[in-house]
């Protein structure tokens, strides 16, 4: 049997989940015996290959149109989609902006912040527009495995991956099911 192919992408994220992934430490050697990492945010290949992957992992919430597209692309190219971390699961910390309008958020961020002088809201065709609300991945595309935590512990990430490798759908409970930083 060939290796299981995995693609990763981060959306509105802080890379804390990826740090936690690296915290599986030497188990990564064991993991790479069975898994081939294709695209990740830190490899040359940025998007999952057209031929598709077995497992897609998304971290971060969805707060702009580009992130929506990334989520849809990953969904269309993977068999099993994991929403990794509280932001991917629920929208996370960026949902704090959901209590305000997009316009208010941009004005506050680019013009009204105390350290800003003569600020303006950047506008360019290359800049992706914000969505009205920040949402979790599951609000945009169907998700197969939710892995909450801020970040999920290395053990929780390891548990999910090894369960998938064993051909089972991971059922998070006990100490691998945690929200926020309750670890």
């Amino acid at each position: 049997m060939g290796k299981v192919t995995v693609a990763m992408q981060w959306l509105e994220a802080c890379a804390g989940c990826e740090m936690s992934f690296l915290d599986i430490d030497e188990r990564i050697v064991e993991l790479l015996k069975h898994v081939e990492l294709s695209s990740t945010p830190i490899t040359d290949l940025k998007h999952p290959p057209q031929s598709g992957v077995d497992v897609g992992i998304l971290s971060g919430g969805i707060g702009n149109e580009e992130e929506e597209e990334e989520a849809k692309l990953m969904r269309s190219r993977c068999k099993t989609l994991i929403a990794m971390g509280d932001c991917a699961v629920t929208g996370g910390i960026c949902t704090m902006r959901n209590f305000f309008s997009k316009e208010e958020v941009l004005r506050r961020g680019y013009i009204e912040t105390e350290s800003t002088v003569d600020g303006e809201i950047p506008q360019h065709e290359d800049l992706t527009p914000l969505t009205d609300k920040v949402v979790g991945v599951g609000d945009v595309v169907p998700v197969d495995v939710f892995l909450p935590g801020c970040p999920p512990s290395a053990d929780a990430i390891w548990f999910v991956l090894t369960e998938l490798l064993a051909g089972r759908t991971p059922k998070l409970e006990g100490k691998v099911l945690k929200y926020g930083m309750d670890g």
Binding site: D86, G92, C150, Y179, G180
Partner: peptide, 8 residues
């Protein structure tokens, strides 16, 4: 959201 709650 537990991630920014002091009771988490």
């Amino acid at each position: 959201y537990c991630m920014f709650c002091q009771m988490s």
